[in-house]
Design a protein around this nucleic acid. Structure first.
Lengths: 228, 228
DNA sequence: ACTGATGATATTGTTGACAATTTTACAGGC
DNA sequence: GCCTGTAAAATTGTCAACAATATCATCAGT
């Protein structure tokens, strides 16, 4: 028979695992509640997540291995910031890897995945008219993930996930704004056409262009911000 | 004035950091002294590295984030093994990423890096005649690293390092054997020719072929081993 | 000999206290 | 006002002890 304390804890909130704490920190970074350079003080994370100090430190180690945070002796963890050159390299790699996935999607994807991909694309188109950038952002992440998964490439899916995190704080909130939505929708349309025609070469090329366009837009945004 | 204990410790061996322990474990895996599936018992690692339990566990977390080891509740860390399909995906990604580096090396590398790359290639050729596969292996790693560094792409350098580790135990000792050395030297020769001619397209293509050849050889070796 | 239960051992998970270091606050001199 | 040194506070690093769980050896029963 469980004690009242155990019962209360299990109902209210389980003590989070290090993976859950890491997820929480990633989410904070994505939501710009933690910005690059900011220090991650252990007690603060403990208070906000309910995790033990041990688990928090484990989470820091994992995030450090992913390159998302930096750990310095006696100074703890802080959110790492990517240089513009590093961002360029990240997008270069993404363009290649996601391009390959677009190619393989043509060869290997099931009818189900194809239909779902097309549906997501049309839902994103609707976001342009209704001007819903947050919704678009979520659908877009789903679309890219489904494409990699449909291509049957778990390794690239993991890699791209990691490549994205260091610039996530730039993407959400600021990224899908202005004409970028229309541009992205047009890019997706070209990719979907190639996939429907089963033209692997065209799909790969179009996906590369799409990622490169994303980088171009991001760096223009970055330049504009630095002028302020 | 340092106490005799401090002095002895600093002369003999510093307590290793978690990064050093992680490096040690990676080296053990590369040297096949730790094989996939094998459990990494904390006290054993502590005894062999001199690190504290705390540092060892930090190292496990980092290696887990890299995908090199697996951590199970109350069962600790064990060396992860890649499926043949995962290995295929790893090499696919490597072919693309290193291909890009070969391209960029043509555009961006200094005369110094070019000369050093050529020198490493010729040293590897000598290894074929003298039949020194371990030496070849080391030079080869240097060659690939220099190519990525000369291309000015730190991000890809890190990625490829990670992509390689899960199959390192297959590579060293068994990999560079028989005709593989000659094949690899021939591949390198083609790549070097393209670089010297500053033909970026040819360099990229040749590097992709080289990595794909490596995968082909590895999977044939794997098949032969399973037949035994 | 084989199977399943049972206790002993080994291994990992967690916590708290304390040490080492950095950061901050503050007083004093210029 | 501004710099500088010093002590207090905050923060991280480390360790040892204990709890939870898994693994292994033993043995009874068939």
């Amino acid at each position: 028979m469980p004690s009242p304390e155990d019962l209360a804890r299990s109902i209210a909130k389980q003590a989070p695992s290090s993976a859950q704490i890491a997820d929480w920190i990633r989410a904070q970074i994505r939501g710009s509640r933690l910005v690059p350079g900011q220090r991650l003080v252990e007690v603060d994370i403990i208070r906000q997540t309910g995790g033990s100090r041990f688990k928090v430190r484990e989470a820091f180690q994992r995030l450090a291995a992913e390159g998302l945070v930096e750990i310095e002796e006696f100074r703890g963890a802080s959110v790492r910031s990517a240089t513009s050159d590093e961002v360029r390299q990240l997008y270069q790699a993404r363009a290649l890897l996601e391009g390959l996935c677009a190619r393989d999607f043509c060869r290997r994807a099931s009818a189900n995945d194809r239909a779902r991909l097309a549906q997501l694309a049309s839902e994103m188109e609707a976001c342009v008219d209704s001007n819903a950038p947050e919704k678009f952002s979520g659908l877009n992440a789903e679309w890219h993930t489904l494409l990699m998964r449909g291509a049957g490439n778990q390794v690239i899916e993991d890699l791209v996930k990691r490549l994205n995190t260091p610039v996530h704080h730039l993407l959400f909130g600021t990224f899908y704004r202005g004409d970028r939505l229309k541009e992205a929708v047009e890019d997706h349309r070209i990719i979907m056409q190639a996939i429907e025609a089963n033209d692997a070469d065209a799909a790969e090329l179009a996906m590369r262009r799409h990622v490169e366009n994303g980088h171009r837009f991001l760096s223009e945004l970055d330049r504009a911000m630095h002028i302020d």
